[in-house]
Simulated scan of single mutants.
Amino acid sequence: METCVFCRSKLDIVFENETCFAIFDCNPVTQGHLLILPKAHREDYFSLTERELVDTENLVKLGKKYLDQRYALEGYNIGFNCGVVAGQAILHCHCHLIPRYQGDVADPKGGVRGVIPAKQKY
């Protein structure tokens, strides 16, 4: 798709498999933040083929191994934003693999529930 930044840009691929690839996020949440994307333009997670789902999962696991070797990590957040209302800014499916470090936030309890800040703490 000509208007998609992921489709039209020359990207620095960290690793890839048959249907997907991984790049470092150009606006990382934390050091090492990776994006895993299908090579074909797919709008969101729900548009992925079965093969792309498997290849995405394999790259998430490979990304974790790669990041574990490079950084002293304590955890990860993994996620997809599906649709503009959910925060998806680029309508080409991408999985965020966000490394987490001890002390990167004062209180990490609630994790991804923080997408709606009032619901994060419970």
Rank of each mutant, 00 (worst) to 15 (best):
R113Y: 15
V29I: 15
L59V: 05
G83P: 12
Q69R: 13
E57R: 05
V29C: 14
F46D: 09
K10T: 13
E2H: 08
D12L: 01
V54W: 02
P28W: 05
Y71D: 09
G79K: 03
P99M: 08
H92C: 08
T19Q: 05
Y76L: 06
I90W: 00
H92F: 04
H33T: 09
V85H: 13
A89Y: 00
Y101W: 05
F24A: 05
F21L: 10
V105E: 14
L62S: 14
T56V: 08
V105C: 08
G63H: 01
L59T: 04
A72K: 15
R8F: 02
L11K: 07
M1S: 14
G111L: 07
A89S: 14
V14R: 05
Q120V: 04
R42W: 00
I98H: 00
H41L: 09
D12S: 12
K121N: 14
F80E: 00
K121S: 15
R8H: 06
L34Y: 12
Y71F: 15
E52N: 03
F6M: 03
R42L: 00
G110R: 10
C26T: 08
E74L: 05
E18A: 10
L67V: 10
Q102E: 15
V5C: 01
L34R: 02
C7I: 06
Q88T: 08
E2M: 04
P28S: 04
L37F: 06
P117W: 13
C20S: 14
K61C: 05
L91W: 10
V60F: 14
L91D: 14
V60N: 08
R100P: 09
N27P: 03
A22P: 11
G32T: 11
L37M: 12
V85I: 12
H33V: 12
Q88A: 04
C82E: 03
T19R: 05
I90Y: 03
